[in-house]
């Protein structure tokens, strides 16, 4: 009997270990399956619409809001910034191709620098390379530029690549661990709320599914009364579970973005968005 128990425990441990050692593509397929099984009435492509893909009453309100989208002013402001010359006469167009329609190329792993590069990080690196001050990462002008570039990129397929590079895989794994780990005084993981808890109510709101989460940022949030980037939202979620948030564009948030965006491979970018 003891041998049987020991064998069973060993098998269970091995199963868990094999599960966590899965390739990113195996992870992604299981992630997609989890959400498509949990919400069988939601077409896969519709998960890019977040909570509105699973909650009809909220969707009806959102469709009304989309008649006059609150993020439109931010796109316009971002376009103005995009066209404004830096002090050296150059513009963002000297850093980014295709009139800024490059959201589909981010985030990516930079093998030389050994780090994840996000669009917002690249925007600031463009600025500093041209002698401009960097922008704050969570809102304001950064959210405007990001909104403009996201709008330009609408419809691009999400296709994050994890190259055959142990450091890239380690960054992906750190993002994955962060996503599934409980933290803060309330002891919640990202997945607790936006995986197992997706579709449940938190006070008056329905929790959105994580599948598709990174497609529609930056967003105009009614709660914020303005625009915010994906990392602003990461920080907000951490605060809500009473964990000390990390800084926007900190390495761990970039790695979380890397993992989470990889999970959305095959969906399309549809930002900027409007959320409650």
């Amino acid at each position: 009997m003891k041998k049987v128990i020991v064998t069973l425990v060993a098998l269970m441990t091995a199963t868990v270990w094999i599960g966590t050692q899965a390739s990113p593509e195996t992870d992604r397929a299981a992630f997609e399956k989890f959400f498509t099984q949990k919400f069988p009435n939601t077409p896969t492509a519709d998960f890019v619409n977040g909570v509105y893909s699973i909650h009809a009453p909220s969707r009806a309100q959102w469709e009304e809001i989309e008649e006059f989208p609150p993020y439109e002013l931010s796109i316009d402001a971002g376009k103005t910034e995009w066209n404004k010359a830096f002090a050296n006469g150059k513009t963002y167009a000297d850093c980014f191709e295709n009139e800024g329609a490059v959201r589909g190329s981010y985030p990516y792993w930079d093998s030389d620098r050994k780090e994840v590069i996000t669009l917002e990080l690249a925007v600031n690196e463009c600025r500093t390379a041209n002698g401009e001050e960097p922008l704050k990462y969570s809102k304001g002008k950064m959210a405007d530029i990001s909104a403009y570039m996201s709008y330009q990129s609408r419809g691009q397929e999400i296709n994050v690549v994890i190259p055959d590079d142990a450091d890239a895989m380690a960054a992906y794994d750190r993002g994955k661990e962060f996503f599934y780990s409980k933290r803060g005084q309330l002891n919640f993981s990202c997945f607790d709320c936006h995986g197992g808890g997706a579709g449940s109510m938190v006070r008056a709101d329905t929790l959105s599914p994580a599948y598709g989460h990174t497609s529609h940022f930056p967003v105009y949030r009614s709660k914020w009364g303005g625009m915010g980037t994906l990392h602003r939202r990461f920080g907000g979620c951490n605060k809500q579970v009473r964990a000390k948030p990390f800084k926007s564009q900190s390495p761990i948030y970039r790695e979380l973005e890397y993992f989470l965006t990889y999970m959305n491979n095959g969906l399309v970018y549809n930002g900027p968005g409007a959320r409650k």
Partner: peptide
């Protein structure tokens, strides 16, 4: 260690 048990399979 425990986070690993939450990864969908």
């Amino acid at each position: 260690e425990l986070w690993k048990t939450r990864v969908p399979q």
